[in-house]
C-alpha cells in the first residue's frame, strides 16, 4: 500500500495503535491532550493579562516565566513548550508571527485565527509590519519601536498589551473582557468602547 494514498482515518488509527504499542502515548493520554487543547481559548490569556494589570507581583512573574504564570491561573502546561510573555510599553509594540510554520501559544490562546498560518501574514509580518497592522486597523506611531517576534523554535510567545486609559478601578474580570485574541498577538490593542 502506498502510504500517501492511504485513507487518513486508517493511517490515524495505525499511528494511534503504534503509539500505544510502543508505550509512547496511550489512548487515554491522547484523549486527555485533545480535551485540554479543545478547552483552551483566548479567555485564558485575557485573564492572565487582566491579573497582570492589577497585580504587580503577578506581572513580574508573567514576564519572568510565562509558564509558571499560566500554571498559577490553572492552565495545564505540562509537556508543552515554555511560554514567553512580551510586554508592550509606551515605546515598544510587539507582534508575534511564526514564519516557518504555525507556532502559537495554544495553551493560553486556543487555536490560532485562520490568517495566522497564511503565507501572506507570515511574509508581511516580517517585511511590512506597520502597513499590515494598518490593514488590521492598528496604527503604531512612528516613535514607537515595532518588534516582530518570529517564533521559530522551542518557545511560544504571547503579548502583554498596555492597559487602556479610562479603566482605573476596574476589576480584573471587567478588564479581562476588554482583552481579545489579537491584542495578545499584537495585531490589535485593547480599547474601551
Amino acid at each position: 500500500m502506498n502510504i500517501l494514498e492511504a485513507p487518513s482515518e486508517k493511517l490515524l488509527a495505525g499511528i494511534r495503535k503504534l503509539l500505544a504499542e510502543k508505550n509512547i502515548a496511550s489512548a487515554d493520554e491522547i484523549a486527555e491532550r485533545i480535551r485540554i487543547t479543545d478547552e483552551a481559548s483566548p479567555a485564558r490569556g485575557a485573564a492572565m493579562v487582566a491579573r497582570a494589570w492589577t497585580d504587580p507581583e503577578y506581572k513580574a512573574l508573567m514576564l519572568r516565566d510565562g509558564t509558571m504564570a499560566a500554571e498559577a491561573m490553572g492552565v495545564p502546561m505540562r509537556g508543552l513548550p515554555p511560554l514567553g510573555v512580551l510586554e508592550n510599553t509606551e515605546d515598544l509594540h510587539n507582534l508575534v508571527v511564526c514564519t516557518l510554520c504555525s507556532c502559537y501559544p495554544r495553551a493560553v490562546l486556543g487555536y490560532p485565527p485562520f490568517w495566522f498560518k497564511s503565507a501572506a501574514y507570515r511574509a508581511r509580518a516580517v517585511r511590512d509590519p506597520r502597513a499590515m497592522l494598518v490593514e488590521f486597523g492598528t496604527n503604531i506611531p512612528d516613535n514607537v519601536k515595532l518588534e516582530v517576534v518570529d517564533s521559530t523554535a522551542d518557545y511560544r510567545w504571547m503579548v502583554l498589551p498596555r492597559r487602556p486609559a479610562g479603566t482605573d478601578g476596574w476589576s480584573a474580570e471587567r478588564l479581562a473582557a476588554l482583552v481579545h485574541e489579537g491584542d495578545m498577538i499584537g495585531i490589535t490593542v485593547p480599547v474601551v468602547k
Binding site: D142, K145, L146, V148, V149, D150, S151, T152
Partner: peptide
Amino acid sequence: PLYHVRFPMADLWPDRHGNNSVLVELY
C-alpha cells in the same frame, strides 16, 4: 543553547524600516 537574537529590519530588507526589528530564537 537557544538565544533570542535581535536584527534591525532595515538590514534584512531593501525597504524603508526606521524603527522596526525582528527578534528570533536561534540555536
